[in-house]
């Protein structure tokens, strides 16, 4: 996907990849780093830096009317009023945000 985007932009080399990974995305950043070089081999992305932004789980509480970050993805409770909430706002992302190219 990065290779395709870089070619479309007429770049000759990708120097960095910026990705966002949610805590519930089922992707482990270390495993992503490990497999990155393999996947990048032979493409414009080969040798690029992989910058991973880890996103915590965020929920919306209907009682407080606010969105907040969960201290733990194991406990879906509003950190303010402690009432259960199932309204996920952030945490499943697996997104290629941007590329640094030459």
């Amino acid at each position: 996907m990065a290779d395709e985007a870089a070619r479309k932009a007429e770049a000759t080399q990708v120097t960095a990849l910026y990705v966002r990974v949610g805590a519930l995305s089922s992707v482990v950043p270390d495993a992503l780093r490990f497999s990155f070089d393999l996947a990048a081999a032979g493409t414009l992305v080969e040798g690029a830096r992989l910058e991973i932004e880890e996103l915590p789980v965020r929920v919306f509480c209907i009682h407080c009317g606010v969105e907040s970050e969960l201290p733990s993805p194991q406990v879906f409770r509003c950190p303010i009023c402690q009432r259960p909430t199932g309204q996920l706002v952030q945490g499943r992302e697996l997104e290629l945000t941007s590329l640094e190219v030459e």
């Binding site: 996907m1 990065a2 985007a5 870089a6 932009a9 770049a11 120097t15 990705v19 992302e93 697996l94 997104e95 290629l96 945000t97 941007s98 590329l99 640094e100 190219v101 030459e102």
Partner: peptide
């Protein structure tokens, strides 16, 4: 010259 490309796409 180095530049940024916005992708913003789910993998």
């Amino acid at each position: 010259s180095p530049r940024m490309i916005d992708v913003r796409q789910s993998v």
